[in-house]
Simulated scan of single mutants.
Amino acid sequence: MHVLFLVQGEGRGHLTQALSMQQILKTAGHDVIGAIVGVTPQREVPAFFREAFSAPITPVFSPGLVYNAGTNALEPTKTTLQAIRSIRPFWKSLKQVRDIIETKRPDVVINFYEMLGGLTYALLKPSVPMICIAHQYLAFHPNFQCPKGQWMYRQAFKINTLLTCFGAKELLALSFDKQPDFPQRRVRVVPPLLRQEVASLKPMDGNFVLAYVTQPGLRSELERAHQERPDLKMDAFHASATSPDQVIDETLTYHAIDGKRFLNYMSRCKAIVTTAGFESVCEAAYLGKPALMIPQPNHFEQACNAIDGQRVGVGLGATHFNLDQFMTYLPQHDPSVSERFRAWQQQGYFMFLSALNRATAPGDQRSGGFLMPRLRQLLR
């Protein structure tokens, strides 16, 4: 089977999931023939993905998220306005994606939450079946928990998620734990996608807290927390770090973002502080490391991740770097959570391959309805 990927290039999670899926497909004898990655002029395809992905990569323009440089808060209005201003180049991108699909003629397209995929299938209707994979598709599941109130953010999140998956045969919703499928909305609940590098690690009990922050604005929060708890040794992988090991003082060291080194540090830490990104929390859960999950301001998806992660017991949700609260929580953390998580994650191999077989089986290849009826249905 020949498979083409469509990958959102924002952050690390979807790119890492694509690498994990490539490993699964190679093990099963399938051929990943390429990846279309959504980029912006300010955000290129990350080096860690270029180095690890073994097939040709085609960067294609796709509007990104806008954050406040001072507060690190996601700015939905500016994000929307930027997307509107990008209509013409975005339409060009949709036609480029359609042409790549029709030229390469894969057996199936796997879309990792890239809006280019959903809108290309909605408006230009490529002839190749597509399935979509992301944690965000749990938003269409009746068991999904989200912050109370925040109606506007909730609807914006659902609309954005919907725009990534028009025309998909199935939505594979990555979940911390096993839940029933929801076929009424094409949702199948599947385990997280973790790279083989994570499974090969041998966790050890360390004496330091690991921090992972991708947005520069979070640096001030991290340093404020360090000043409050200078006795607590912290190693922080930070987007603005300029060297592999940037020593600040005896108990705080910054590290430049490096996937392999980060996993090594995670296997040796006693706990992790992160911005409630699904991928990092899953890696921590697999390695048995409790997580302090701090959603970025106005980032509804991360707020949902923190609630969901706390529900299954992988860590503690918080609004800021409250290290005292986290240290109080650690003795209460249940280590059996990691055992259950591992057992669930190991079921993924056959579930993902089964989804590919269903997508390519002869049958109805239609996109599943018009835009507005589908929008009204999913926002209920």
Rank of each mutant, 00 (worst) to 15 (best):
M1P: 09
F5V: 02
L6G: 06
L6K: 03
R12P: 01
R12Y: 11
G13R: 01
Q17V: 01
A18T: 05
S20A: 15
K26V: 13
H30G: 04
D31A: 11
I33Y: 00
A35L: 03
I36K: 06
V37A: 04
G38K: 07
V39Q: 01
R50S: 08
E51C: 03
A55Y: 03
P56Q: 03
T58V: 10
P59V: 06
V60P: 04
P63A: 02
V66C: 08
N68A: 11
A69P: 14
G70K: 15
A73T: 07
L81P: 08
Q82N: 15
S86P: 01
P89L: 02
V97F: 00
I100F: 01
I100L: 11
E102K: 00
P106M: 00
E114Q: 10
L119G: 07
T120V: 02
T120Y: 01
Y121S: 06
Y121H: 05
A122F: 05
A122G: 06
A122L: 14
P129W: 05
I133Y: 00
I133V: 13
I133G: 04
I133P: 03
A134R: 00
A134I: 03
Y137S: 00
L138R: 11
F144K: 00
M152K: 14
R154L: 12
R154F: 09
Q155K: 13
Q155I: 12
F157W: 07
I159L: 15
L174W: 06
Q179G: 07
P180R: 01
F182N: 09
R186C: 08
R186F: 09
R188E: 10
V198G: 08
K202D: 05
M204R: 13
R224T: 12
Q227G: 13
P230N: 08
P230I: 09
K233Q: 15
M234P: 08
M234I: 14
H238Y: 14
I248D: 05
T251A: 10
L252I: 11
L252Y: 08
D258C: 09
G259Y: 09
N264E: 14
Y265K: 14
S267C: 07
A271T: 06
I272A: 08
A276G: 03
F278V: 02
V281L: 03
C282M: 10
Y286E: 13
G288F: 10
K289C: 09
A291E: 05
I294Q: 06
I294F: 05
Q296G: 08
P297H: 04
P297G: 06
I307N: 04
Q310Y: 09
V312W: 07
V314W: 06
T319W: 01
F321A: 13
N322R: 09
N322I: 09
P331D: 04
Q345V: 11
Q346W: 03
Q347H: 11
M351G: 07
S354V: 01
A355M: 07
N357E: 15
R358H: 12
R358S: 12
T360K: 02
R366S: 15
P373F: 02
R374M: 05
L375V: 02
Q377F: 02
R380Q: 13
